[in-house]
Amino acid sequence: MSVDAPPGTAPLLEARNLELRYPVRTGSIRQPTRHVRAVDDVSLELGPGETLGIVGESGCGKSSLARCLVRLATPTAGTLLYRGTDITRANQRSLRPVRREIQMVFQDPEASLNGRKRVGQILATGLRLRGVPGNRMKAEIRELLRLVGLNPEHVDHFPHEFSGGQRQRIGIARALSADPRLVVLDEPVSALDVSIRAQVVNLLYDLREERGLSYVFVAHDLAVVRHASDRIAVMYLGRIVEQSPADDLYDHPLHPYTAALLAAVPVPDRVAARGRSKTVIRGEPANALELPSGCRFRPRCPRATDVCATVDPQLVDHGGRHLVACHHPLDTPAPAREAGSPSPA
């Protein structure tokens, strides 16, 4: 299963049937007895200058997928291609040139910046990697700070001397210091205040335009992802269950899970908030160790029927690059529910 890139653009990053399993160790000798498939048969493509949003509840595997894409984790199966080169199991040495081109911004800037280093030192590492000569270093660091909207005078400050939003800007500057083509953003604004969130999202947008960057934008906030992404993939228990151009996903969600996620977002509008049907799905995702048979969303799905319990749905294109893995997508009439069909937990 692959997604066609727009004609004329070779994909920058391509994942085919990617899988990441974690061993579950039990007993006194910590033997791996079972495995959790955090990422299960995920295929996606990212073109140059494109932003792919990945959304889902906590535990759906979105961060694991992000770590696979930057090769912080080694996929246990499948193929990961960066500009046509297979990097699925490339070793650290051969990854070095790729590492510079694929950078990551983490959720918690407090935890991901070294508190004992000054901002200038943090940024110098990436610049040295890129071969910036020592006499140019100072100027380049100041340029980076200016680029992300920080005062270049603060080059000798420590991370704790900045506010949360500023620290995330340092995290972004550090990613940019290596002059990447692709930046994987793992919940880059979740830890920030509402008023600061919009500033950082706008900064990311401007940087993408200025430097022709590609982004993978991982988030649980559908509203933020909507404005930042060209295409969006919705994950549920390790799988992509729906993938589509951003507008299409929000206007016409096809997977009942996507529709439920959208319905759960509170709208900042008094009239609309009252008119909305509130809870659409109940319960929590199934235990990733004991996946339900057939469709993983079945126990919570209002449209589930017998076929959902037996056949695992595959991603199918419903036109316009809108893929969905569901037996009863929302562009079909709701199935008549047989007596005894699984009821939502």
């Binding site: 939003g165 008023s195 919009a198 906030d221 909507r226």
Partner: peptide, 25 residues
């Protein structure tokens, strides 16, 4: 006003730049 406006929304048009409140608290 600024607080209400700076919330990214699911309804309405998709915008490239979100309205922001400049500066910090």
């Amino acid at each position: 006003w600024a607080l209400l406006r700076s919330v990214p929304r699911l309804d309405g048009d998709r915008v490239e730049r979100l309205p922001t409140i400049g500066g910090s608290p």
